[in-house]
Write a protein that binds this DNA or RNA. Sequence first.
DNA 1: TCATTCATAACCCTTTTTGGGTATTGCGAT
DNA 2: ATCGCAATACCCAAAAAGGGTTATGAATGA
Lengths: 215, 215
Amino acid sequence: MKDNIKESLRVQIYEDNEELRNMLSMLLTHSNGFELCGAFSNCADVINNIAECLPDVILCDIEMPGVDGIEGVRIIRKQNKEILILMYTVFDDNEHLFEALCEGANGYLLKGESPAEILKALKEMYAGGAPMSPSIAKKVLRLFSIQREKTESDLTPREKEILTLMVAGKSVKMIAGQLDIAFETARTHIKNIYEKLHVHSQTEAVSKAIKERLV
Amino acid sequence: MKDNIKESLRVQIYEDNEELRNMLSMLLTHSNGFELCGAFSNCADVINNIAECLPDVILCDIEMPGVDGIEGVRIIRKQNKEILILMYTVFDDNEHLFEALCEGANGYLLKGESPAEILKALKEMYAGGAPMSPSIAKKVLRLFSIQREKTESDLTPREKEILTLMVAGKSVKMIAGQLDIAFETARTHIKNIYEKLHVHSQTEAVSKAIKERLV
DNA sequence: TCATTCATAACCCTTTTTGGGTATTGCGAT
DNA sequence: ATCGCAATACCCAAAAAGGGTTATGAATGA
């Protein structure tokens, strides 16, 4: 939601390289619609920096001496879920990327993006988006498709249904009740499931079902 | 205009709305660097369509009568992991989004994007990116951060250890053996865990532990 | 038509789990 | 020094789950 009165986006910078930090500062101070509110060389004092300057968004490198960017995000998110954080880094490996996203970063740009792209990303983030460099977006999407190989089990539909209820924590009695079948019928299905999965208890079955994505 | 003969991106369209399909066809035939190779109203014959026209990328609606877009992606990916697929839909709900991504879509645009954005997304996808509408990108990123909040439970370290073994499918006897404690001690811990989680069985505890990411 | 699979259901019997206690030891905080 | 808590351990009775077996009707397919 954009505020008519607010004329510019308040941006705070964290970047250890002085040259780049100055360049980014210049970029922001001289671009319409942006306002620089602080530029720091690491996240050591990030809570105070935010409290003093009240930025809308944070542009944050990852590799920095002292408190790094990911640790910075962690610290910020412990008490502030609202402020927007755009990672800006050379790291394009999965580890840094997913750690940053898990801690609550709102976007992830690789160094190498043009100044115009940086400004666009900051705006996009403020408008409710999640800007990512193309190769980063691809890595993120790939996460969804790679894992999908659900092991082919020869469970019947009914058995799958019952296994699902077991995974949900239901007892035999509850399963029978919910599916409107006799207790002994539910048990028969469960026994067949155990045989097919080569397990001997509900917890084992549930564990295996989850590990092998059978449900 | 040097590359309008050679090096144009071959795009195939799947969209049930005839008006929109024609509009998209026009857009592609009249844009430099793009070449339309087929426009269809559903994915019923997607394998043949691809084999005949050999597109580089596919622009694909989701809601279509007959074989819909998500089913289409599934069919394509069964035999072709290379071709690029950009979903183009009105659906911005998590279910459609994540299903499409899991099946192997390479990008996800919402209807409402400008023609220029569509062309840009097609190009970006071909360049190795994963274009998403801003609000879609945000949903995707949110997946990483929301789940990270492991519910704060007041389980002791020993209890967490035991819960972990339960989640792995171990019985009380096995847990006791593995931790080298008495059977009754393991049971005491388990009883305490049940009380803290408000559950009454191993499967319930395992289910809750997984759902609330306690382990 | 006949064999197979699936979903349904029941029986007997054993083992495990669960819920209720009680109790000791050790360790850090008051 | 004492309090509280975590970890250890045991007992008993009831409930639930597990293992084996058999059986029937419906649907499917060779």
